[in-house]
Design a protein around this nucleic acid. Structure first.
Lengths: 135, 135
DNA sequence: CTAAGTGCAAAATGTTTGCATACTT
DNA sequence: AAGTATGCAAACATTTTGCACTTAG
């Protein structure tokens, strides 16, 4: 639970700028390594991604199919929210509504389970993709 | 959506037997490869795990930290259920209660999201581990 | 000056593929 | 006989490590 000391280096700033200027998009380590403007080495990218995830600056999402973990700017840090991931278009939707506390209550009282909503990802099909299909 | 034809081979039977006789435990490909009684090669294990997951015989869970994906006998195949994964002891609990349809209803009406409950894993802390901590 | 960060090369993991052989149907 | 499965070796992809060097505080 101790905050580690981080120097403000070029690499760290570059990554923070990169994520914060694409707040809704997910990137893999690979994406970042191959982004021209950044030119960061593999170890540096993985090290920074891990640190920034631990610090809550970005969020980490596990790989679905091929490829590695993906990361995204964490706008709603610590706010209590949940994620909806569309299996069709791949979009990751950040949701925040009252139902969350209802879910937490249910899991706690009925299953004795303390839900960590920030880490839980709901899979399914998003509104856009559902509409497309019923055409 | 077409069912692929599968031969009943020694390897396939061995894996099915293995999973069905440990219905509550999760195994990685690595675990299986190193299980003495089975003696299956790496490619065979990965190929079978993929096929059996597609066919719904087993369930696949993505890696949390280190290690690869883990697999488990799918007892509640197609029954509509959800999973609670304890971050502390790692246990994966299979839950099946009425709240599920309530959740589906909420996501559908409020978020336009069609939930695939079978694939969704809730992270948090299970009853046992919560009790342990408050000692 | 000291602690932390960086890049390179190499290693460790997890998973997949090409291909010749063996098994199921 | 035809189609699928297997094992080996090798390829691939992702992530980590060791180490010499640089940079921030």
């Amino acid at each position: 639970m101790e905050k580690k000391e981080h120097y403000h280096t070029r690499a760290r700033r570059a990554l923070e700028d990169f994520f914060s200027s694409h707040p809704d998009a997910c990137f893999t380590a690979r994406d970042i390594i191959h982004t021209e403007g950044l030119s960061l080495s593999e170890p540096t990218v993985f090290r920074l991604l891990s640190q920034m995830t631990e610090d809550g600056v970005i969020e980490r999402f596990l790989p679905e199919e091929g490829g590695g973990a993906s990361y995204r700017w964490n706008e709603c840090a610590g706010k209590g929210h949940f994620h909806l991931k569309c299996d069709v278009c791949g979009e990751l939707i950040c949701a925040d509504c009252d139902f969350l506390s209802e879910m937490e209550k249910h899991f706690s009282s009925e299953h004795g389970f303390e839900l960590d909503s920030d880490r839980t990802v709901f899979y399914g099909k998003c509104e856009k993709c559902r509409k497309k299909e019923t055409k």
